[in-house]
Amino acid sequence: MAGRGKLIAVIGDEDTCTGFLLGGIGELNKNRKPNFLVVEKDTSITEIEETFKSFLTRNDIGIILINQFIAEMIRHAIDAHMQSIPAVLEIPSKEHPYDASKDSILRRAKGMFSAEDFR
């Protein structure tokens, strides 16, 4: 195991964030920047995307958990992320059950058997 322990970040609806914060992942750093974003009805896609990108650039974050329906809003940003750290994990939300066919990783794995791979 190398280096310091990293954080787990969450982008999700209120209940998802509350649950994970109860689990003990929450942090407010010296600059009062949290490692979570509660997405509400009035949260703009730009704000979500900016937060996601800021989590990607922070080197103290190891895993980003994101509700799948929110991931759908910023799919291009998630697909563009190719590094293994931080890992992006799509999780279900209350109103939107998890759909494996939408998951970035599984779509990449599925792509393994597409015609493009045989070219």
Partner: peptide, 27 residues
């Protein structure tokens, strides 16, 4: 609700990420 979140938070969980040369990461 989110209103009850504390103003001071410290993480109780840490993830140790080790990345190998071939791009595989272990958490």
């Amino acid at each position: 609700s989110a209103l009850q979140y504390a103003s001071e938070m410290e993480p109780l969980v840490h993830v140790y990420a080790s990345g190998s040369e071939n791009g595989e990461a272990e958490f």
